[in-house]
Amino acid sequence: MIVLVAIKQIPDPLVPVRVKADGSGVEIHDARPVANPVDDNALEAALRLRESGAAQGVIAVCVGPPEWEGTLRTALAMGADRGIRIDAPDALDPWPVARLLAALAVREGVSLILAGRQAVDRDQGMVGLLVAGLLGWGQVAFASGLEWEEETGRCRVLRVVDGGQEVVTLRLPGVITVDPRLNTPRYASLPAIMRARGKSLESVSPGELGENLSSDLEWLSVFLPAARKPGVRVGDVAELAACLRALGVVACRS
């Protein structure tokens, strides 16, 4: 099987974000661009599938401007076989991103798409599952464990849901979105980074995939959430207990 890993480049999520004075968007200063952290977990999972012999190839794909090529090169240095950038502006909505990824997956004969459960900048959590719906493929969301079962030709996935952890088997072709708990992504070694610099990246235009960039969302404005009112420092446990009692928090009779 060929695995496609969708990777988004985002500003370092640990750097503070500001709202622009006119409320038209956010500003993030001096943040170095990084791969969306959960997408690295998706790439790691794909590389492990290839190393175990289950996958024959791993294609890392970004839907973004030329400035995102650094992220694709890092993916190559980590071990992806090919890096493809679908040319698009930064901050494209998930809906056109999903259409472009779906078209590319079909063109490349991919049978498994791995993506992060959400990009931690806009936190929309939809690209991978939109692709599954568009293509009519199977899907598993929030994978925290992933194995290929040779005998059944299915993926065996552990997923984190609100009530616990669920075991699901998935027939391919399919889409799996991954949780940060799935694995620990490897680091690219220095020699691998040097080698990846020499490798060529592929680039595809939306037109070549028979797609456009149209979206049906309009981002009207952004604002800061209401600040919580200042709290109080309690001096000791007795004072804390009194405050909690005033809120009706007391021990239940057991």
Binding site: D93, P94, W95, A98, D123, Q124, G125, M126, G128, L129, L130, V131, A132, G133, L134, L135, G136, Q139, A141, F142, V160, V161, D162, S215, D216, L217
Partner: peptide, 21 residues
């Protein structure tokens, strides 16, 4: 997790963008 898994798929089938959260 129930709706977060379901609704993007539904939207993809209907060829629209969902709004989440």
């Amino acid at each position: 997790s129930f709706g977060a898994e379901l609704m993007p798929r539904v939207a993809g089938m209907l060829r629209v963008s969902p709004v989440t959260g």
